[in-house]
Every structure is written in C-alpha cells, then in structure tokens.
Design a binder for these strands. Structure first.
Length: 275
DNA sequence: GCTGCATGATGAA
DNA sequence: TCATCCTGCAGCA
C-alpha cells in the first residue's frame, strides 16, 4: 500500500531495526545479486524517505535506493523467517530480524550525486513540512508553474512528493476543490488549505498505519471504502451531501469526486469540467 | 485455477 | 497514449 505514509513508516521501522547494525544482504531472485554483495556485511547508518523513495546509507558502501512502485512490498520477520520466495529481490538480515523485499520498481545502489539528483526533482514532502525545501511556499510555487488540472498536479511527484491516488481524491474532497481546476488558477487560500490537509492526512496515515480520512475510523474489520470519503465510492452517496459521487480518469488514473461538494471554480468558465 | 485489477512510474512511439 | 515492469489478491468459475 505504498503512498507516502507507508514509505515513511518503512523508513522509521527499518531504521529502528537495522541502523547501527551489521546487515547480511542477499538477492535470491538474482537481479540484485551484485548490489547485495556490495552491501553484505556493511553497517547501516540511516534510512530516510522522500515522498515514495527510500534511501539506505551504509558505512563504506553506496546508498541503497528503493522505490516500491505499485506492487513492491516489504515483509518483516522477527523470528523464524521462512525461506525467501524465488522472486525476492533483496533480503536484509541481522541475528534478530529479516526483511524481504519483493516487486519493487527500483532497487539500486547509487552515488551521492545521483541521490541529490533524485531528491532535487522531487517536490516538497508533506511529511517533512516545515523543513527546508518542504514548505507550502515550494508547493505553491510548483503549482503556479503548471496549467494542468490540480487533480493531475498532485499526483506529479515533482510538484508534491508522497501523494498517491487515494490521498489525491481525499485531499481534494476535504478541501472542496474540483479536480479539473487548473493548478495555476487555484486561489492562494485553497493552495494553503490543500497543503495543510495533505500534511494532516499523511501524518494520520503514518500514525494509523493505513489510510483513514473519516473523522473516526470504523471499529473492527473494514473495507478501504469504509474509511474514506470518495475513493472508489461511486456506488455510494456522498457522505456530506448525499449526492452522487462522480468518477473518471485523470493523469491515467481513476479519480472520484463529488460535484456538489467540489464545484468547479466560478472563474474558470472556459475549462472542461468533469460533470 | 484463471482473470483482471491495484495505493506507481518510465520510456518508446 | 501505450506497453512494460512485476506481485498479490478479490472475484469468479
């Protein structure tokens, strides 16, 4: 479930488990055999996240860069780890813990200059709000240079880093913004509100370990659609106004919104507005 | 057991 | 815009 909140949790979790420890690395699948050999037996210094990217820094080795993409998953075993499936790209292990990685889009060793290049083309990360480079001013500046719909802009990791398809739909709903609004036409107050909402939603995702955007998470077992306002809820009435939830496609991904709670901006009369 | 879909992103055309 | 990377799971036979 890799939007920014889970990546941030992985960074913290892996830092607690592995930082300062000597780590054994293997690549059962073989595709990362050379890379695993270069970090095998090294001491992990730190793990950091920027948006959906993870960076593992080692003593006397290059930095491990991981991006989970759509399918990538970590599994952690604190005792009796099963033997890794043949598809496992990377295993990291100490005496106490084993972490298996399968299906990542990116798993590579990189030089500091390459890490810098990756970070510099990422937008501000709401989970690092307030730090240098991760401010609403950066976000606003990035939006001001885009004429694409805001619903496409927030998925663009160079505009804001860490938001995925669920948070996109939820943040726009909670701020009452119509997804078709051109990014550079969003009023400053709305930009501010959207940033604050993104920070709040992602931080809550980190705290809860899952995406919950309703004020109160339902008790017991719940479906994804029981914890959110609009994502995948086109077969349900709007939780706010009772009207229909619309769905369509934006930036090659499905999107959901309420056309009553997220009306098109009055000023943007010439834009095509999803109805 | 099979099919299709998914919270992502890139590179070719 | 499309194909591809590549895993897991829900839904259906």
């Amino acid at each position: 479930m890799p939007e920014g909140h889970s990546i941030y949790r992985y960074a913290g979790h892996h830092r607690r488990l592995l930082a300062g420890r000597r780590v054994a690395a293997t690549s059962p699948q073989g595709r990362f055999r050379g890379g695993a050999a270069r970090i095998d037996g090294r001491v992990l210094v730190d793990v950091t996240a920027h948006g959906k990217h993870l960076f593992y820094r080692w003593q006397r080795a290059e930095t491990l860069h991981i991006h989970l993409g759509l399918y990538g998953k970590f599994r952690t075993y604190e005792m009796d780890p099963p033997s890794p499936t043949p598809g496992t790209r990377l295993t990291l292990a100490t005496d106490d813990v084993s972490i298996y990685l399968a299906g990542p889009t990116v798993c590579e060793l990189i030089e500091p200059s390459r890490e810098e290049a990756i970070r510099s083309r990422l937008g501000p990360d709401p989970l690092q709000a307030g730090s240098r480079g991760h401010t609403v001013a950066e976000f606003a500046g990035n939006l001001s240079r885009r004429t694409i719909p805001i619903g496409a802009a927030v998925l663009d990791q160079s505009v804001v880093a860490g938001i995925g398809n669920i948070y996109r739909a939820e943040a726009l709903f909670l701020t009452g913004i119509n997804p078709a609004t051109p990014a550079n036409e969003l009023p400053a107050a709305k930009v501010e509100e959207l940033w604050r909402q993104s920070v709040a939603l992602l931080e809550r995702g980190v705290a809860e370990g899952k995406i919950v955007t309703l004020p109160r998470a339902p008790l017991g077992r719940s479906e994804e659609t029981d914890r959110v306002y609009v994502y995948k809820r086109d077969r349900f009435p709007c939780r706010r106004c009772g009207g229909p939830i619309s769905t369509g496609e934006m930036a090659s991904r499905s999107i959901w919104w309420c056309r009553t709670c997220q009306p098109p901006a009055a000023a943007s009369s010439t834009t095509t507005v999803p109805a």
